[in-house]
Structures are given as structure tokens and as C-alpha cells.
Design a protein around this nucleic acid. Sequence first.
DNA 1: GCGTAAGGATTGCTCACCAATCCTGCAATA
DNA 2: TATTGCAGGATTGGTGAGCAATCCTTACGC
Lengths: 240, 240
Amino acid sequence: MIAYCVLMTVVDPASAALASLSQVRHAIARTTTAERVADAVREEVTEGRLRPGARLPEQALGTALGVSRNTVRESLSQLVAERVLVREPNRGVFVAEPDREAVRDVYRARRLIEPAAVRHGEAAGPVEVVAVRAAVAEGLAAAAADRWDDMASANQHFHRALVALAGSLRLDQQMSLLLAEMRLVFHRMPGVREFHEPYLTRNDTICRLLEAGEREAAAVEVTEYLNAAERQLLAAYDAL
Amino acid sequence: MIAYCVLMTVVDPASAALASLSQVRHAIARTTTAERVADAVREEVTEGRLRPGARLPEQALGTALGVSRNTVRESLSQLVAERVLVREPNRGVFVAEPDREAVRDVYRARRLIEPAAVRHGEAAGPVEVVAVRAAVAEGLAAAAADRWDDMASANQHFHRALVALAGSLRLDQQMSLLLAEMRLVFHRMPGVREFHEPYLTRNDTICRLLEAGEREAAAVEVTEYLNAAERQLLAAYDAL
DNA sequence: GCGTAAGGATTGCTCACCAATCCTGCAATA
DNA sequence: TATTGCAGGATTGGTGAGCAATCCTTACGC
């Protein structure tokens, strides 16, 4: 296999270039209708225009988006798999309402993944650390401009950048799912600003440690960050 | 919300009992046809009866399983999301053929998750360690009886049990996806027996360390295990 | 050998339809 | 009063036919 590729490179350099193009094929490939519908619904949910618990009737969605009910069904199934929506058999699909246990479970996973990525991530090169710094800057800028929604997004970018230190596409995708679920948690409670603001300086601290190469210290800081965030969220649930 | 539940308990104990029943609701819920089709296809793939690269025409599947093409499409979409199948737009869906890079990516993720679960898992109680021991015993028994397929399954149970030490349902599911992908890797190459057998004693070693409470040492052992397995698989790819 | 056109097969998607299930409201009953 | 029973309407789960677009194959012409 490898020998074959090498051979091709020797014989015909252009072929190798073409072969590498096949990796971006999915980018060229026209997005399917079902995907676009799923993207649209997902955005409505993550942006908070569809609140947790809201019902999504297939017929209504179909006519609203100008696509058939079958296509809608396909999209909804995908979002159910992503935990953005929940299907209740013979009743319909609803925007998920993460409960206390969901929060605890998500944080158990995050406490495992994020510090480990910071501590032992195999792709923690300068480029990846720069991405972390960029997310921190994005958050500070958004806060300075009073754009609180953007600050929340920047915070997600920060955590995504931390996991990216592991250099695993599959882990990145898993993290995206967890963060999408966190968005739903935030939409269930008030005070997004109050929640995220204190973490701006924490993010900066973690990033500085990373830039200084002190990964163990950074990992410890991440763990404390996550513990504090979980405590705060659970307390908010109690007060609900 | 919480106050309301407590109130109900005080006023009417039977209501609390009924409320607890809602937690097993999903167990009652009749499985949908699309799900069953997905399960069937997934099993065909993981059992190796559908080889990597095999094509799955929607029409043929539908008539073979006695369901409509729409239902088949829904099932296939789900399996594509699980990475068991790959969809090539306007061409069809195929059993995935994990390449070298897929193997490297999966192992990057596993090297992050598994040692971290062993090292810092928050649910590493006696019960969970017993589950690890059970998987080790299962593998030894299968090997003693020359049931090599069962030994491979037992090995997967072992790694699932390691991740279960973290106590996160979401992490468990992510691990299931990674292991399903590994099954496809094994089906692409010969010598399942030769590959798995040497790891029986390693599994036992890791389990002993866990039982002795030496989690750090166990985690190091898991890391070396994964490194060795990845090297062996990549070498097998080169020889392909 | 290489480009190209015709033909067939499959996918992506729509539409119309039906049975089963669920929800609602209302009457009947204890 | 509170529960039970029961039409009715709405929604879901699933089917089948059908059509345009795309892809693959093959044959043809140069």
C-alpha cells in the first residue's frame, strides 16, 4: 500500500497531489438537504431560539423549511444521535433538557478529557497553543465589547482548543457534542454573563502556563476550573 | 422543581414510586424498525460477515430485510454517524475501511482516555474493578477453549471496563464507537489470534495493579499496552 | 490510446397514503 | 369529587411509487 503510493509519487508526482485532494473531497461534496436542515435546526437550538423542552413537529418543520417530511425525519434522527434533541416514541422529538445527572456526567467526561489533553496531549505544538491563546483573546475582546453571547462562544472555543492539544479528530468531535450539550444547560438558566465572566482570567492563567510549557500545572488548573464550574451549575439547578 | 418533588413525596408516597418508574420508560419503549435494522447491519459488520469496503445498496437491503427503502436510509444514516459505514454522495454507503491515519487517530484518543480513566476515574470502586477482572477471566477462558473470536470480544470488554472506571455514560458510549472502529481494523487484516493473545497477560497485570490500588502504575501499563498495540497494527498495515 | 456520448443503475428527495399511538375533551360512573 | 371509559383529531412510524440528478459502464469515434 505504502510502497504503491511511493511508487506513484516517483512515477507521477501529479498523482500524489491529486490523491491528497481526495482528502478534501467532503468539502467539495455538495451538502445534502438533510444535513442543511440538521444544521439549521441545530443552530436554532444552540442560539437559544428553540428553548429546551420545545417540541418539533415534523410536518410543521417540513413546510417551514420547504422540505419533505421524510427529509425532516432524517435530520431529526441525526440530532437525536447528537443528544441535541430527544425522541419520545410516538410522541415526537423535543429539544433536550439536560438534568442534574446529565451535567454531572458531562463534567465527569470533561474532567477526564480536558486535563489529560493538557497534560499528555500529543499535538501540543506551538500552533495548537496559539489557538488556545486566540480563544482567550476572543473572550476578552467580546467581554470588553459587552458581547456576552460571543464571550460564551469564545469560552467554548477555548475548551475546544484545549482538547485539540491531543491531536485527535475523534476526540475533537466528541468534545463538540459535550459542548453542544453544555449550551443547552446554559439555556435552561439565567445569567450567562455572570457564569462565564469569572472564567476569563482563569482561561488566561491556563494559557500562560501552557505557553510557559508548564503543562502539569495547567492541567491542575483546568481540573479546578471544571470543578468550580460544575459546582456553580449544580447550585444553579438547585435554585431553579 | 426539587421542592415540588419533595412535596409530592410527602403528600402521596405512591406518586414518588410512580415517578421513579419514569426512569425505566425507555426500557418499555418498543424499539423502532430503523433501530432494529441498524442493529442488524451493525452486527453483520462487527461479526465480519460484511467486510470493509463492501457496498450496501439501499434497495437490496430493504428487500432482504423486508423494510422500505426510506427506513433503510434512516438506519444507514445512523451507522454513518457511528463511523461503521461511510457515505459517498450519490454513490452509496460502504462498510468503512479505516486507514493508517484512522488507526493513529483512534489510538491518540484511546491513549488519552484509557490511562486517564485508570489514573483518575471517579467511579473506580470495587464493583467496577470486579468488572475489569471479569473481562480478564472471560478472555483467559476463551483462549483456553480456543474460541478466538470470543477472546477478541473479551478484550474489548476489558477496555470498556477500564473506561467505565470514569463513571461517565457519555464516555462509555464514545469508547464503544472507538472499539467498533477497531473491529473494522481487525477485519482488514489476518491473525486475530496472534494479535490478541499476547495481551492476555498484560490485561491480567493491569487488573492486578488495579486490585492492589496502584492506579498510577496501572495507567502506565495501559499506556505501554496501547503503544505496543498501535505499533503492531501499523506494522501490519505496512505489510499489507 | 484518449475523449466522448448513450444507457443503465443508484441515490437524493418528494409526495401520498395508512395503521398505530397519543392527546384532548366530555360524558358516565362510583 | 375524582376516576374511568370513550369518541375525535392530530401526530408519528412506516410504506410504496415516482422523478431528477449523479455516477458508472460501455461502446463508439478519432
